[in-house]
Write a protein that binds this DNA or RNA. Sequence first.
DNA 1: TTGACTCAACATCCTTTGCTACAA
DNA 2: TTGTAGGTTTCCATGTTGAGTCA
Length: 443
Amino acid sequence: MVHLKYFRGLLISDHYAPSLSWNEEFKAYIAPAYRYYQVLEYFRQGGIEVKDEVMDPIPFPLVKDSLKLRDYQERAMKAWMAKKRGVLVLPTGAGKTALGIKAIANLRVATLVVVPTIELLHQWGDRIRESLGVEPGIVGGGEENIQGITVITYDSAYTKVEKLGNRFPLVIFDEVHHLPSTGYINIGELMASPYRMGLTATPEREDGRHVLLREVVGPILIRLSPSQLAGKYLAEFKVEKIYVELTPEEREIYEKLRNRFTSFLRKRKIRMAGPRDFQRFIFMAGRDKEAREALLAWNESLRLAVNSESKLIKLREILKERANEKIIIFTRDVDMAYRVSREFLVPAVTYLTSKDERQDILSKFKNGDYKVIVASNVFDEGVDVPDASVGIVLGGYGTSRQMMQRLGRILRKKEGKVATLIEIVTKGTTDHNLSRRRSSATK
DNA sequence: TTGACTCAACATCCTTTGCTACAA
DNA sequence: TTGTAGGTTTCCATGTTGAGTCA
């Protein structure tokens, strides 16, 4: 007979199985706790009797199950129920939370829901109360109350995972693309939970670490894009790109800055073939004065291209044409957001905006007191932004994730609505490259 | 309870102009 | 001849958030 135990994020076995390794200190075979279901499966298939003391689940409350799923949600749920592990990829606004709630109602085991922000902590709490009729535990944002269904932030989960790792047979990772980062991955690895669900609109990460999700959460089971749901469940939408030029003065400065960057690369025979090369260049800038100057020049050239003068002229035209529509303007940096705010007399929301003021601006935008607002990168995730019909992208990252989130802000379904996402791009600059890289999101 | 603060963690960051060694 | 892989580490700056501390 084999004896399996859990100890502070570790699976401990007195017999060998693949993925376990001998540990002298414990005088036993050990592995990170997420290997539990594989190891158990291995012993069971071998017909070996197991004394399983790994899980110590919190009692599960009595819940109601009143939730009705849409047809594509049913498909996603069916795919997940077949394995009870894996990632579901659905666009913003397509009802990912409902899938998590349904999984809890189906499995009826203690569940930990991990979320990136306090706002999502409360949104999930409300949905659980509403759909399952129970009071959820909340950990994070100053609260610490653990129940059979508990919502927790990634930050809190990271510090408490060793203690909580064997108390929840089901774990749901909302915005699961956060999980593979170097710290948070511990949450996935040190939990023993055999049942796992990951929810996101965009699993891919710039650092490539999303490949870890397959091992820690499971494979991608379903993937739906905004265009697949447009019309019936999300608003019809179109994406427009408008190209502008740098002014001659801007062009002169831009070329000078670019030249400082490229001539450094040429001189040092540095090849920029991918993100790793750029990363190395950044490390180099930490020690090498010339490299540092080259990098600063590159940063400055990017800022110039993304925030070009012509974009503001074009913005003025668009705002005039669409005077009666609800519009969100997106910028890449805080300075540009406040510049737009000053020149067009519209409220700005950035990370510097206080919580109360942000709340106030968003509620006035919702009820129509404000027709136009400008935001930096703050609406990228986990913020409940009132619906708009037009999004104007003045600047952003080169990631499809950000583009997808921004698109999601205008896709709420309304009768007869056609949403428009307008991107203003500076031709012949890095801004154009960024735009090309992110545009796969809207296909 | 709140607000102001600090700190830590996470994310972005590339596409040119082609070095050398080795495998197919 | 052609194609492709090769090569660490501790981070230029800016943006964003959660947690913790203290008044």
